[in-house]
């Protein structure tokens, strides 16, 4: 007994230390959808918040009603049941019509955003992304630029079964690639998506967009990163695609228009000259790491 009591402070200290170490790299605050860096992702976020608050409002009413009943009509407090209360057409009309109204209110902005999402007109750059087990290929259509993008070596070593490498010691563990896709800011980019072997899905949460890359089909999506939002944005394959589904990240580097032109020119220069030269089909990974990380990074 006394032994147990003496142990209490040390247990408390231990759990406090454990909690502190958890909050050291704390991501406890990751509770909600990030706002994103494109107009569409902001609209999607605001739809998400609107429907969320509607749910909260309905929840307060419904859960309030339930809790009220459970407290006020307890048998232990001598509540007598009113067995005549079995039906009310008026109540039923009310709780059918009001939800329909709320749904209509929600459906209108949702439909408006959806129409904008599906509007592919006026894109300036088209990039075809092909999902492979387990990497992405990016082809800049009309530019003769094409390269593969797969999990960076550091993450790949750390993610092996019982590797002994602490994932916390790897920068952007599982969210970093050797060759990221590069796009300019403030430009409407159209992505064409397809799969080589099985179905994959291309997802960058900061762009608000996810779409399946399906063999035999070409899907489209578009995004336009706001001016001034250069940086690196990270996502993952979002459709189960086999053993290494968890290990094919999507990384997009957003640069200024000038930097993009320079990058594209360098890519072409590297790809076109003498075949003697090693085909350097992408920028060096360290160039990516040198850039400041985006808020979502």
């Amino acid at each position: 007994m006394t032994k147990a009591i003496r142990r209490v402070p040390s247990v408390l200290a231990l759990s406090a230390a454990a909690f502190a170490s958890l909050s050291a790299h704390a991501e406890w605050g990751n509770l909600n959808m990030p706002v994103g860096v494109t107009e569409l992702s902001k609209e999607i976020h605001s739809l998400h918040m609107t429907i969320f608050w509607w749910c909260v409002a309905i929840g307060v009413f419904v859960f309030g009603w339930m809790i009220w009943s459970l407290v006020a009509f307890r048998k232990s407090q001598g509540a007598k049941p009113d067995t005549t209360m079995v039906h009310s057409t008026k109540a039923e009309i009310i709780w059918t019509v009001i939800p329909v109204g709320i749904l209509v209110i929600m459906a209108i902005p949702a439909a408006r955003t959806l129409i904008a999402i599906e509007d592919m007109r006026g894109s300036e750059i088209s990039i075809k992304a092909t999902g492979y087990q387990w990497k992405w290929q990016y082809e800049y259509l009309g530019e003769d630029v094409s390269f593969f993008s797969q999990l960076d070596r550091q993450s790949d070593e750390a993610r092996q079964l019982k590797s002994g490498v602490d994932p916390n010691s790897v920068q952007d563990y599982l969210l970093n690639v050797d060759n990221p896709m590069v796009v300019p800011e403030d430009t409407k980019i159209r992505m064409l998506l397809t799969g080589q072997d099985v179905i994959h899905a291309w997802w960058v949460p900061a762009f608000g967009m996810k779409k399946d890359a399906i063999p035999g089909t070409i899907n489209e999506l578009w995004f336009k990163v706001d001016a001034g939002k250069t940086g690196i944005y990270r996502g993952q394959c979002a459709e189960l695609c086999g053993r290494d589904h968890g290990f094919m990240p999507v990384v997009v580097k957003v640069v200024t228009k000038e930097e993009y032109k320079a990058w594209l020119a360098a890519q072409k220069a590297a790809a076109s000259p003498a075949p003697a030269e090693a085909p350097a089909d992408a920028p060096a990974a360290d160039a990516v790491a040198a850039l400041p990380a985006a808020p979502r990074g």
Binding site: E27, N30, M33, H245, G246, F247
Partner: peptide, 24 residues
């Protein structure tokens, strides 16, 4: 719910360290 909104895909055996706390 938090993990999904923060961007964690389903059906993955391993995840980025930002998802560690709520997974635990």
């Amino acid at each position: 719910h938090f993990l999904g909104l923060a961007g964690m895909p389903r059906r993955i055996p391993d995840y980025s360290t930002q998802f560690a706390d709520w997974n635990m």
